[in-house]
Design a protein around this nucleic acid. Structure first.
Lengths: 214, 214
DNA sequence: CGCCTCCCCCATCATATGATGGAATCATCG
DNA sequence: CGATGATTCCATCATATGATGGGGGAGGCG
């Protein structure tokens, strides 16, 4: 059976899809409790009852947004994986950082929603989870931190989380950080990439070289 | 004139202080919109009207919490600065990471509130800001990334933000990340420190050595 | 004691917000 | 066209939440 979410993703012009897109943005900016169905409806230019007609209650819409984000992020990770396959570690990481950063800056609500979910509770438990563990394991394998996605050590997971979160932080914190730096958006993005590559790559490359010596 | 906040900080047993402490926790967990005055009052074991009696409207209480957090964080940074003064860079960073991580794990609402403020909007503008720019500049100077706190380059600021945020992320994301790893709390904290030191230090040390060669 | 001030709670209000029912509109198809 | 179903909006409800007024009590002080 086709879910509402699948239907919405097929036709981006449909009302379902337009509501979903607006919900991604608004939930991403204000979080679950900070966003109101009225804000989302107004953003689309429709009545709230239309929103309820298509997506049911607020929590259902929110969970659909999370699923949607998950799909997009998972696809991006696959794309990156294919792009960097077979290259040396430093190059793999540099490309991954560049590509993921570009993707996320183009879809900042992805980073926003992920981080807000990490760091903020919601009054009612959602039961629904990000696929963070799977994604993290995949990246760990891709970075050569684990042989098998089933056997990723806690240390490796936390290393991956550090890298991914460092990227998300710059995207999601743009509204706060960019005014601090006084940079234009383009410069901010360039500097973010530069900073991320400068800080994140050397440690892994160094360890990689040491292991190669054995 | 003594502010309500100053009064509350003097006597931690006072009702004012107890409410403030609860507010730090609840706002930290749920964010501004996710937290309700009733939740905070219930946490203290008092009526909401008592809360309003001491702190006025919700937004005022929230801003007091932010000011309170700022003072605590600023003091911690000063403590760390004194502790690491004069040592070589790698050592300075390792100690700073250890000490700040311990402090923040003991007061996770500090990280929570900071990150939620970075990444989530609130419906009404607060006008009140974290002292993030000043703190960031101080750390930049302390890390040798700038001669003067008045002249910190955007690049240096973003490097500092990367480091600070990496720490906050592990504290604030514990509820999400620790179950992923299956670690006990103590092991989680240890692994977080290890990971942070492993990733964050080498890049700066490498660059420091290169500059020393000049 | 009588009065005052400070502090706290009960009852209540006002508004924001999630949600729904039913009418109106539009498209599709026989 | 006329029937049918899908979609949208208007009016309205129910609840959660922020906020307030007034009363009561504890303690200090004449």
């Amino acid at each position: 059976m086709e879910t509402r979410l699948e239907k919405a993703r097929k036709d981006p012009e449909s009302m379902k899809a337009r509501i979903l897109a607006a919900a991604r943005r608004i939930f991403g900016e204000y979080g679950f409790h900070g966003a109101t169905t009225r804000m989302i409806a107004q953003d689309v230019g429709i009545d709230i009852s239309t929103l309820h007609y298509h997506w049911g209650e607020k929590k259902d819409l929110y969970e659909s947004v999370i699923l949607d984000i998950n799909k997009d992020l998972g696809q991006s990770l696959i794309d990156v994986e294919n792009m960097i396959h077979g290259r040396p570690l430093a190059e793999r990481m540099a490309i991954a950082i560049d590509v993921m950063t570009d993707y996320l800056f183009a879809h900042p609500e992805v980073s926003n929603l992920i981080l807000l979910r990490y760091f903020g509770k919601t009054r009612h438990e959602s039961g629904l989870d990000f696929k963070v563990p799977e994604f993290t394991s995949d990246i760990a394998r891709s970075m050569g931190l684990a042989k098998d996605t089933k056997l990723v050590s806690p240390l490796a997971m936390m290393e991956v989380l550090t890298v991914m979160n460092a990227i998300h932080n710059f995207i999601s914190g743009e509204n706060f950080f960019r005014p601090m730096t006084g940079l234009e958006r383009g410069d901010y993005i360039r500097t973010a990439k530069e900073t991320l590559k400068f800080i994140l790559i050397p440690a892994f490359v160094q360890r990689d070289r040491m292991h190669a010596q054995d």
